[in-house]
Amino acid sequence: MGFFLRKRVVSSAIPLVFVVLGVFCLARLTGNPVDLYLPLSATAQQRAEFSAAHGFDDSIAVQLWDYLAGAAHLDFGTSLRTGESAGSMVLQAFPVTLQLAGVTMLLAILGALVVGSLAAYRPNSLVDRIAGLLSMTAASIPDFWFAIMGVLVFGVGLDLLPTSGTLGGPEIWVLPIATLLIRPFGVLVQVVRGSMVGALSAPYVKVARSKGADAKRVVFGHALRNSATPVLTVAGDLTVGLVNGAVVVETIFGWPGIGKLMIDSILQRDFAVLQAAVLLTAVTIFALNILVDVCHALIDPRVRQAVPA
């Protein structure tokens, strides 16, 4: 196991370098942010001074070298917008998104296991059909539309939930999480159902059933364990996709998370913050992928030997 893990971590570190390079160059392509940060009537000299002060007049190679040299000492530069350290801004925003994503995925997986199993237990039954239709619909609703409908219906119309924000009791979590949840939940229900149907019709389950094993034990003892692998894989990919959802949700509900930070830093051409944020999400995604692989290896011994990387 130790060898497997080490190999996986080392081979993942190389792509990280490419992520850093990629986001650095992309950010530079969006142009010099001098116009955004200087007064409309700033003189050419003021512009030149601003560029020099922030190193935008150096060649891209020099800028990259400076950045890498800083990053090696965990100094990710200073935000143009706030003047604070980019690293600390990102670390401050990160837990917010991590909590949102964590709770969302936990609920999505648990909910999908329950609904998916119910649907798979009697394929083509009414329950199955309703679950199928609802989950497919849930997976294809635009998230921002869902969020605004949620605010209008539950926030204003029914007066049940706060409209937005991060200050308040547990109820403030409901709408953001519901918005993030719909797509992973819809997709996972279908995955669970699919693999459970497959497992329930597999010979060993049929044998167990014909021996008179309790129906519940069959579902939860045999079939559920068998569907762990595909659910794990898909859940891992869906978690990665939550970054996209977080941008929308945090923008609408005013949550100070990494998604909002990234879109703001793009719009404000705040390169240091954007780079630090993308780097941190990339590291997290790597960690997540490794975690998924480790889980696979734990569940399925074959993976340990056959792992490609």
């Binding site: 909590q99 706060p162 937005s164 924000g165 991060t166 200050l167 308040g168 009791g169 547990p170 403030i172």
Partner: peptide
């Protein structure tokens, strides 16, 4: 940690 126990809205 995010949700300060502050009542009634943001």
């Amino acid at each position: 940690a995010v949700a300060n126990s502050d009542t009634a809205g943001d």
